[in-house]
Each structure stands twice: as C-alpha cells, then as structure tokens.
C-alpha cells in the first residue's frame, strides 16, 4: 500500500486546474476527497505523474439554496450535506442518502463532486442525482457546459466528462411540496457499498426511481418512474428489475441481488409514499 511517486499540485482556481490538466494530459488526475483515488494509487492500480488537489479552490465550495434550484459545489463534503439545515428542508433526500454513505470520518473528507464524477457504480450519489434529475456543470478548456445526471454515466468509471474537464457544481431542482422522498440501502456493514439501494420520489402524480450498484452505471428507469407515477407499484418494480443488470460478487449472486433490489425498491416506495402529501 505504497503509491508510486507523483507531483502534487494545489491550484487556487478552476482555470489553473484545467491548465495543469491540459499540460500533463493522461499523466494528471484531479483529486477531491480522495477516498476512491488514493486507495487505487496505494494499490498501484492507478498511477499518474501529477495529482491536482482541488481543496484550495473556493469556487468549488458552498451550498446555495434557491427557490427552484439548489446548487452544490463539487467540493462540498458529505458531512456538509448532512449538517446544512437549508438543504435538509429543501431536499431531505440528499441528507437521508448522505447519512448512509460510509462513516463519519469518510464523510468529513468525501465530496459530492468526487462521488458523482468518478463513475463508480457503487457510489450512492449518482443514482440519487438521477432520481432528483440533477445537472452537472463541467468546466474545460473550451468553456462551461451542463450534462444531465441521467445522461452522464456511460459505463463503470466512464462518463460524459472529458479528460480535461472538471465537474464544478451540481444543480438540483427542488422537488415540489408534497413529493415524498426516500433512500433505502442494504449494505453488509458500515463503510460498504450497497448490495442494493433505491432512491424514490413520488407525489402529485409524478415519480422518479433510481437504483445503485446493480449495473455498471446507476439505473434511472423511465418506465419504472412512469408506472409509479400512475400508482402501479408492481409495474414499477417489474420495470426496474428489467433495467438492472447486477453481477455476482462477495455480496452474493445475481438472483439474491435482484431479490434484494426489489425489496429495497418496495420499501423506498412505501416510505416515500407515506411522506407524500
């Protein structure tokens, strides 16, 4: 668990970070909280000559609560997501999910931007952001652009982000009053990735359903969401089971994961419905 040598950069603004990425190309990676990248470096499964630490970039920080939209800086930590009162009342689902990520020590360092940008199918925030229909703001050499969370994930660790782009902020539409929300996660222990996790919003004739760690990307299912919006829970679960594609691992075989996926989804739906107006 000893990483290979690397140069450490600590730019003060996004433009500087992008120029370092441009200068070193494949040799450079940005690091946010480091909980995915640093273990990979210690295992020498990720080796790069230049590590660009985003900690000192103020423009990547802060939570802004608007009437229609919440804006989360990429470097906002899970701990900040949990302790921000305005966020908890605007979108309680984010706090509920963040509380189920890892443990307090990890959450002090782990960031929402790193969680969504890394493309790790085990991470909780990507599925959550798809459920919430969030938009990711990207900055690169050619300027800024936005990508919907539901369009962002291509395969495990492959996303719509270009190598020289940095994910800077996340815009999340504030759900309408009366929309019930719930995040349900089964895991083996504290600190584990989900065996299966479900994010659900339902109410006012609308619904959105996404699941985590049951395919090589998070799965937001339009069919499942539509079915639930129409009040068809069985149809929602069936559509979601059709959409996921879990693989066997130490958590268990495929048939177990599919069964648990359905259980998590039904429980999340139950709880979200009970919270809906």
């Amino acid at each position: 668990m000893i990483p290979a040598g690397f140069e450490y950069h600590r730019p003060g603004d996004v433009a500087s970070a992008i120029s370092i990425l441009q200068e070193y190309g494949d040799e450079a990676r940005v690091v946010a909280g480091g909980h995915s990248l640093i273990p990979m470096m210690k295992l020498r499964m990720a080796e790069m000559g230049h590590l660009i630490d985003l900690q000192a970039i103020d423009e990547l920080k802060g939570i802004e609560i608007g009437a229609e939209t919440v804006s989360l800086g990429a470097m906002v930590t899970q701990h900040e997501l949990i302790t921000h009162d305005g966020l908890a009342s605007a979108i309680p689902l984010i706090r509920e999910a963040a509380l189920q990520i890892a443990d307090p020590q990890v959450r002090y360092m782990g960031t929402v931007g790193g969680n969504v940008a890394n493309g790790d199918p085990g991470n909780d925030m990507p599925g959550l952001m798809q459920c919430l229909n969030a938009t990711f703001e990207l900055s690169g050499p050619d300027g800024n652009r936005s990508v919907a969370a539901r369009e962002f994930y291509e395969a495990a660790y492959f996303t719509a982000r270009e190598d020289e782009e940095i994910l800077t902020r996340i815009s999340v539409p504030v759900p309408d009053a009366g929309v019930g929300q719930a995040y349900e996660k089964q895991k083996r222990k504290i600190g584990d990735y989900a065996t299966a996790a479900a994010a659900v919003m339902v109410g006012n004739g609308t619904a959105s359903v996404a699941m985590t760690n049951l395919a090589d990307t998070p799965i937001w299912s339009e069919a499942a969401s539509t079915a639930l919006a129409a009040g068809d829970v069985d149809g929602c679960v069936a559509a979601m089971l059709d959409a996921i594609d879990p693989v066997a691992d130490n958590r268990g075989p495929v048939e177990f994961k599919k069964h648990v996926a359905a259980v998590m989804l039904r429980r999340a739906i139950d709880r979200a419905q009970s919270r809906a107006a």
């Binding site: 089964q186 083996r188 065996t195 958590r251 268990g252 075989p253 177990f256 069964h259 648990v260």
Partner: peptide, 11 residues
C-alpha cells in the same frame, strides 16, 4: 451467516 447465505436459507 452473511446476508446472502441467510437469504439462501429462507429461499
């Protein structure tokens, strides 16, 4: 007796 092995008993 992890989750999936217990589930397997029930199953």
């Amino acid at each position: 007796h992890d989750h999936w092995r217990i589930w397997k008993i029930a199953n």
